[in-house]
Design a protein around this nucleic acid. Sequence first.
DNA 1: CCAACTTGTAACCAAATAGTTATATCATGC
DNA 2: GCATGATATAACTATTTGGTTACAAGTTGG
Lengths: 231, 231
Amino acid sequence: MAAKARQQTENKAEADAGKTVKTQTTKVSRNPQRTHATILDAATEEFAAHGFGGARMDAIAARAQTNKRMLYHYFGDKEGLYLAVLEASYATIRNAEKQLDLARRHPEEGMRELALFTWRHFLAHPEFLSLLATENLHHAHYLQRSDKVSAMHSHLIDELADVLRRGEVLGIFRPAVDPISVYLTIAALGFFYLSNRHTLSTIFARKLTSPDALNDWGEHIVAVTLASIRA
Amino acid sequence: MAAKARQQTENKAEADAGKTVKTQTTKVSRNPQRTHATILDAATEEFAAHGFGGARMDAIAARAQTNKRMLYHYFGDKEGLYLAVLEASYATIRNAEKQLDLARRHPEEGMRELALFTWRHFLAHPEFLSLLATENLHHAHYLQRSDKVSAMHSHLIDELADVLRRGEVLGIFRPAVDPISVYLTIAALGFFYLSNRHTLSTIFARKLTSPDALNDWGEHIVAVTLASIRA
DNA sequence: CCAACTTGTAACCAAATAGTTATATCATGC
DNA sequence: GCATGATATAACTATTTGGTTACAAGTTGG
């Protein structure tokens, strides 16, 4: 993962203001932020790959090229680390959503954009899907007690509601379509395909992850979504 | 679970042919099939609730009201037990599918029936969904090496293809619709809603599991599926 | 330039965990 | 009616696991 690569490169980029610029080459140099971030990345991989119960603190420490003491130092305990991973993953998608600007688009184009955005985000962040699956296995136990995640609510539903209303006014979308149902439909089609691709391709003996297949499914999501709301 | 209830009731129903009918009331009576089945039920619960890594052999033994030695006796090791659980779960759905007879139905009715069947099966077997999620976390590692599961292939796709073809002939469905895509669409809408209901209801602050909500979503699946294939 | 604090390492520990062994008891074919 | 194998119990073991402690070394404010 990227964290490992940026290891011995940038070292305190702002602390050397006027001081002796001996960016020491001793093997053990400090960088709390980097260590924190590296641990978080490693933990994300480990929890996504093995679930909460299957994840090993030792393995995370090894992945992050540090030791367990640091995990407990920065994150308290296994649950605290898991929660931090979950919150960071949600923060990533909430942040990405900001790039969307559906307000000035034709409703049909807006719907297409929203569906493809969701699909592409899932594609780019498979660890997010795995974490969601894990968290749901635990009945969202950790998510519920996260004040951070509940604080960063998505504007997606509001934007979607606006697109639907404008489509309705234009007479191209059915009236009174429920935006949450539409969002769930888009998310379901993307999530299921990617999250369950391993069992599905085993059962159906079909390759689901070739670039073409992935592209086709993105278009399928758009087509199904539009068909379901068109007047 | 049901296994516990049927504990001290039926005991060797055929072995008492002419022999002394002292169906002994000693606390320790034997019944290998029941023990086997009870362990499987308990393991299904445990693996579905905690995933493979989080499941505990001791907990399964306790749930089944037996001891670890029996788990290893009947299933070899943890992986063997997990695989048996997975195979039994697939056998359940394959078995249920036999009740479907879409061939003599009007295509539109057939599609409705297929979608609702899938939805109802997911509703009735939440543990199947959890196991699927867990198995996909492990990239279908265990499913791939199961000759049992690959042997019991579903006829659902064949039946679905037939329904689609008849609908096409009648001019009500679009031509050349891919049956696997249609099945994935139906499964996705059901799976995602149920599997992710905990995080979803946390994020959207909406109750998704009331009887009405569940029924509505079933109808939503039917509506979306039909809209996506109609001519 | 040094006292106070932060960041890091490695060895350690108690509890938990998958798997085993010793042994007892039931069922049944002969 | 009993030898034999299958079914059951509980105590045991080697290893792993989450979490801790002792201590070393880097960093920084006064």
